[in-house]
């Protein structure tokens, strides 16, 4: 692996979440990139309409040059999301990247400021701690971006631990709730 082994964020690691959140608040969104499985591009069979499907990672580019990266991550039975801040836009060699800033969904979000970060937790398997499975950014013009574990089958978003969906619509985020979570993908805001 090219980078430090990914681990999902659990409720026992508030510092990891707090640090990621601190980097985002007040920053302008300037674009986004999707990282795809080796040998594939985006959309390449993934949904590219109101809900985007992403194979590996979502990188939200910020006005300071950093990227807030959301990845699916599995640590044994602990299935969840890993959050990371990358200080440059360096690519991950083994993954293909697609700049999706120009898609209609992202284009409408460019230059908006991140006002709030919210998260949703789940207990993915017996004995696992509460683990992050969805993260929401609320933006200055009232828009929201939700990145959550899942995939689209037919017209339905369903849980999948090793795939991501990007929901741009608040109603869709509020309607998506896997069995193992007590809350929807819209989540609960993190305090300052």
């Amino acid at each position: 692996m090219s980078r430090e082994r990914s681990r999902p964020i659990t409720v026992h690691e508030p510092d990891r979440l707090r640090e990621w959140t601190r980097e985002l608040r007040g920053r302008h969104v300037v674009g986004a990139r999707y990282r795809n499985a080796p040998g594939s591009s985006w959309p390449d069979g993934n949904s590219a309409e109101a809900i985007h499907e992403v194979d590996m990672d979502v990188a939200i580019m910020l006005d300071n040059g950093a990227s807030a990266v959301v990845s699916w991550s599995m640590d044994g039975l602990v299935e969840g999301i890993d959050l990371e801040i990358r200080q440059n836009s360096g690519t991950t060699p083994e993954l293909e990247e697609t700049d999706v800033t120009s898609t209609p969904e992202w284009q409408s979000l460019v230059n908006q400021v991140v006002n709030e970060v919210a998260v949703a937790w789940q207990v993915p398997n017996d004995g696992c701690p509460n683990t992050l499975w969805a993260v929401r950014l609320s933006l200055s013009e009232g828009s929201t971006i939700v990145v959550a574990l899942g995939e689209i089958e037919g017209d339905i978003v369903q849980y999948q631990p090793d795939a991501l969906v990007v929901l741009f619509d608040e109603a869709a985020a509020r309607a998506y709730q896997p069995l193992a979570s007590a809350e929807t993908a819209f989540g609960t805001a993190i305090g300052a």
Binding site: M1, A37, G39, D44, G45, M56, E94, L95
Partner: peptide, 26 residues
Amino acid sequence: VKNDLTRAGLEYQKHMGRGELPKVSG
């Protein structure tokens, strides 16, 4: 499930991308 990839193929591809499985061609 996607393009010409089977569910097993897609899963292999993603976990290969995480470095958990040996690399193979598309």
